[in-house]
C-alpha cells in the first residue's frame, strides 16, 4: 500500500491520496494520470494490468488499486 501511495504522490504531488477516494469518478486523476499510473504499477509490482482492468472501481482509491494488484498477483 505504501508503494502505491508513493507512486501516486510522485505522479500527482498536489493530491493527498490518504484523504481522497473516488479518484476516477471525481476526476481527481484523469486518463493521462491513469495510464502513467498503470505503467508505474506494472513496473513496481511486476504485474500485467490489462485494458479490461481500467474501470473506475479498480482505481478509485489506494485500497482498490491494492486489491486489483493482489487479484492479478494471485492469478485472478
Amino acid at each position: 500500500m505504501d508503494k502505491i501511495l508513493q507512486i501516486l504522490s510522485e505522479l500527482r504531488p498536489d493530491v493527498d491520496f490518504t484523504k481522497v477516494d473516488n479518484l476516477v469518478e471525481d476526476e481527481v486523476i484523469d486518463s493521462f494520470d491513469l495510464v502513467a499510473l498503470v505503467g508505474e504499477l506494472c513496473d513496481a509490482f511486476d504485474v500485467e494490468i490489462g485494458v479490461e482492468d481500467l474501470v473506475p472501481e479498480n482505481f478509485n482509491s489506494v485500497q482498490s488499486i491494492w486489491n486489483l494488484i493482489q487479484v492479478i498477483q494471485e492469478g485472478r
Partner: peptide, 11 residues
C-alpha cells in the same frame, strides 16, 4: 475514444 482507443493503444 478513451476507452476503446486511448487505453488499448497506451496499454
Amino acid at each position: 475514444m478513451r476507452d476503446y482507443l486511448f487505453y488499448p493503444i497506451s496499454l
